[in-house]
Design a protein around this nucleic acid. Structure first.
Lengths: 230, 230
DNA sequence: TCAAAAGTGTTGTCGGTACACCCATGT
DNA sequence: ACATGGGTGTACCGACAACACTTTTGA
């Protein structure tokens, strides 16, 4: 089967990049995986982890490849933020970039891979002076995260498999940048039905000890945000 | 200033397209501007209006250029839906496409331009069998529209400058695909503070006549959905 | 015994929803 | 006079926000 390739050939071609906003959570703070850019322009500047899309991969695949090369993690939830397509957003060359965000457990990734890539965790407070339009990408990703975390069991990926309610609350406080009422938070979490109490108790950060919880396995059935059919 | 262009040169290049989901509203139905695709593959199939991004325009500009070439309308609100980057989404060639949606007043555009492009309005009910992944694009755009129309004075662009509350309600009913309570709808609209009653009365579709309303000029100040700062 | 974190209920407010009738007018 | 669409108010319910004390235990 051949098509009229002239139709396609007569148009411009572009470099297409993927930039990843990889969130982690440590010390009650949201962190961001970044590195110092190795080449001009903006050599040495703080940059999101990214790369170019290759011929033989979809854009989504390009994003998850970047993440797995960097952390060894596979099948992590990633979602598109948006496309950044301004003419001179990368002063070096015309590059159209698609941003993705991911949420990972900061305790469960391959440290050595991360070192190979000279990547490190940056506190979100300092994410306001990344190179190019990367700070905007982070802002946009955070807005999505904030919007979704109210409704869906997103954000659990930022914690270890077992976590206490206090830890979970700290995470939400970090995401929204404000403190929450303990009783209201617990009540809400209960009603959302995303988590399940375990028998185990964590005594590491209190004398009394706190029950561990985990993210319910069947929490895919609960949300399913309306089919939005025609 | 020269940069290390080898870094950029060593990567693959792509065709980048823009596909526009252009919504209109007529006869109490949401419509979609489409055309029959002129070339293989899928020649004759129903397609969104689209085109390729050119070297000298941003991706956003590419989208608004498509809209203005097609309708003569400038400065219309358009928003990105997302990027569609699967390998074989366009069977003819590898094309990465960025979808945008727009809402236009179906009574105020240049009919002749539209004819030149062989474009026509399709009822949204029939939008489930567009070519490629275009139906998915429409679904995704609708989801965004539904999410935003509750909070923001979006959707007004689908009506003429002056409109009655009944017309506005029909629009919302079409967007959400269900009928709404008249009293609750009016109460809500009042509280949202987006619209302003005019002195003029429309007698075209009732004996009693209905007040015209318009979208408040200063409604930019009202929303401003939180800075989401770091 | 005391410091430190875990855990637990009630009340008021607000927004959403359900629901039924009168009004003005053209025919 | 009547048919047609325009316009209005009230009562219930659920979600969210504010708010303070008791429990457990390791040091």
């Amino acid at each position: 089967m051949t098509f009229d390739l002239n139709y396609y050939k007569s148009h411009n071609l572009f470099l297409v990049a993927v930039d990843c906003i990889i969130f982690g959570f440590h010390n009650n703070e949201i962190k961001l995986l970044v590195h110092h850019r190795a080449m001009e322009p903006e050599q040495g500047g703080l940059s999101l982890m990214g790369g170019f899309v290759q011929k033989d991969e979809s854009v989504d695949q390009a994003a998850s490849n970047i993440l797995s090369n960097l952390t060894g993690l596979e099948n992590i939830f990633m979602e598109q933020v948006k496309v950044y397509g301004e003419l001179h957003r990368d002063p070096g060359e015309r590059v159209i970039s698609c941003a993705y965000y991911a949420l990972i457990d900061i305790n469960a990734y391959d440290e050595s891979l991360l070192k190979n890539h000279h990547a490190f965790w940056l506190s979100l407070d300092l994410a306001s002076d990344l190179i190019f339009d990367h700070s905007q990408m982070v802002k946009d990703a955070l807005a999505i995260l904030r919007r979704k975390a109210v409704l869906e069991p997103i954000g659990f990926n930022l914690l270890s498999e077992k976590f206490t309610l206090t830890q979970l609350q700290s995470l939400y406080e970090a995401i929204y940048g404000k403190s929450l009422d303990k009783r209201n938070f617990r009540k809400k979490m209960q009603s959302l039905n995303f988590i399940e109490k375990l028998d185990e108790i964590d005594k590491s950060c209190s004398k009394k000890g706190a029950y561990y919880y985990k993210f319910k396995d069947d929490s895919n059935s609960s949300s399913e945000h309306a089919g939005y059919e025609f």
